[in-house]
Design a protein around this nucleic acid. Structure first.
Lengths: 352, 352
DNA sequence: CAATCCGATGGTAGCGCTGTCAATAATTGT
DNA sequence: ACAATTATTGACAGCGCTACCATCGGATTG
């Protein structure tokens, strides 16, 4: 466990090999494929590495091997809590592996996404994790030309580029609407901000569920392309009320909006859930603490991040999963804002 | 703007140089120090690069130059909104520069921090951004041996390792307490979770302000090492009430706790601000939307991230700032939860 | 006008590692 | 016991780029 690197000249693999009494290439194999070494050499190299405090030069490795140990991650937002959880999963499960995470932020711009993917391609990452399934044709072409495992996260669909981990936003929204309908509500408003593809899918789940019940009405819908905030939830709700005063429930595409609605109702003395049911999406922590607590759809974001990394690493190392598409499902968490009793109803969990 | 790299053999700097009719080393200089080239050569290399769609091989560059273009960022949490904002600033201002951000998460563990710093040292980053000023002696030694610009963020203090951007958590907490005292409140509770060094400093600001007013009382304090959640805010507040029923104000070390307190008060029919004043910290977006809106201390997190990157890059490129410590200050944003009128009072903004 | 300097350019020699393939040692079957 | 096979190991030759120094023409100076 020496501290020799501080001493003088840098320790190269050659030095390690010399001390261990093997050739440099054998020492190199010690890192890449230790099983290939005989036990005795393996031990000798191991102790030489420790004694000299050897640290591999990643640049030299990448140059010589034409490979990197970087997993690129492309997400649309750094501020959104949803991605914070996914990222935590990603970083947690990359730790301990040899791979390094390289993060890139598209800010919900598909052009930016194309640019970032092009950039990644130039760096030849070992694997890639991208958000969503709505890449442009150009982005998709880049991904397919990339020649490394790719996992699409956050949602699932047909025709993965390679692998997928996520859940059906459509089904999740449908389940939420079914629940509201079961509570006897009929005029269910829809509040949406920043209508990205996944939010769009939630809208479709809402729309079809409402149509199936013959309750669909365009006047129940208020959306905007503005980014989500709690304040915006209040504003959109005010717009909805002005447009359609007889609503008896609101489905919000995320919990921030739902919290904004809750506050706006407090301001207007609208009693929840007596006068209005509120259902959010994502099941952020505060939904359970709110007064009244807010019904929401729990999504397994941390696990999504973990699985995405595991799948990519497995694929890099030749252990491709049996099924390329992993459905992590969702759970409708029923709380006070939409009923009187608090329960959890399981959603579709399992393999697609 | 060709797409030749797709065609066949990879484009190396040699190819670019050949096409431009210069030596490889001149082409290399085109990227590193374009001013050193004559205008004519510069133009020729430029168009050759574009025609061939040349993309530099970063590994080769790093190997040959003994430098990387990586800025390491060490933060304690990926989930905390506070760091999400800082990170956004960091990524935003690294974009467009030649530098790449490499993120590492300590999960509030100083041992993990040491480990990560050691890892970074092995990679010889061009610069480093670390959170806080309470590194262990070992971590500090690593930082000092790193031989690259280092910026400490989130708070400021004496004896920076190199540079600092932040603000005084002590002063910010003091300002919050002064405000509460000015409202005529005397029994001001303190709620703290995950007492990291910055939260500790806020506590000291609270403690000294209370002592200065001869109002300090240990029974007013409830803290825990558990991570912050909204729910926890309610729990801690319940504990505080049980311990000291006559409180007339609560200072929470962050807005999540404050929101939890607000909800708990709604549950208990405690009227805000009539019966109790609430003040949070960070000025997250929801504080303005809450009912009643929550007084909080605004900190310039996004700007902190931006400045940190700018300072590091400037230092890497030899443009060291005049003063190594940058105080971004704070603003106490007074809202309904602690008074009746809503105003903003500026905190100490300026250079330390 | 020679001496000096400076800006622009190029040649040489690696940076530290791994791919490829050959060489050698150990193991097995009959 | 001997060929055939398999596990280990090593030699060699670069990966694509830049540091270092050398070069060269022209501008500056007394």
């Amino acid at each position: 466990m020496g501290r020799k690197q501080t001493k003088s000249g840098k320790i190269r693999l050659t030095e390690v090999a010399k001390l261990a009494g093997v050739s440099p290439i054998t020492a190199s194999r010690f890192f890449r494929n230790p099983e290939a070494l005989s036990l005795s050499k393996r031990e000798r190299v191991d102790s030489a590495v420790k004694e000299l405090g050897y640290v591999p030069n990643l640049a030299a490795r990448a140059l010589a091997s034409h490979r990197t140990e970087v997993i690129g991650v492309v997400i649309p937002s750094l501020t959104n809590n949803v991605f914070a959880d996914v990222l935590r999963g990603i970083y947690d499960s990359s730790e301990g592996s040899r791979y390094t995470i390289q993060l890139a932020n598209t800010r919900y711009s598909i052009l930016q996404e194309e640019k970032l993917l092009r950039l990644f391609r130039a760096q030849k990452p070992a694997g890639l994790i991208v958000t969503g399934i709505n890449q442009t044709a150009e982005s998709r072409a880049i991904l397919e030309s990339m020649n490394c495992p790719v996992t699409q996260i956050m949602e699932i669909g047909d025709s993965p580029v390679d692998m997928m981990v996520g859940f059906s936003h459509y089904d999740a929204a449908s389940a939420a609407i079914s629940h509201i309908l079961e509570q006897g509500r009929r005029r269910i408003g829809f509040l949406g901000a920043r209508m990205d593809p996944r939010v769009q899918r939630r809208f479709e789940g809402y729309r079809d569920a409402m149509k199936a019940a013959s309750l669909f009405d365009p006047n129940l819908i208020v959306t905007t392309s503005v980014p989500t905030t709690v304040t915006l939830g209040g504003t959109l709700f005010a717009d909805l009320l002005a447009q359609t005063p007889d609503i008896d429930a609101v489905f919000c595409v995320n919990d921030d909006l739902a919290l904004g609605v809750l506050f706006e109702c407090q301001r207007r003395q609208i009693s929840i859930p007596r006068d209005l049911a509120i259902v959010g999406f994502n099941d952020l922590e505060f939904t359970a603490a709110a007064v009244p607590s807010i019904t929401s759809v729990r999504t397994n974001r941390y696990e999504m991040g973990r699985h995405a990394v595991t799948m990519v690493i497995d694929a890099i190392e030749g252990r491709r999963p049996q099924t390329p598409v992993l459905d992590l499902g969702f759970q409708l968490v029923v709380r006070e804002s939409s009923t009187r009793q608090s329960t959890v109803m399981a959603g579709s969990v399992g393999i697609d």
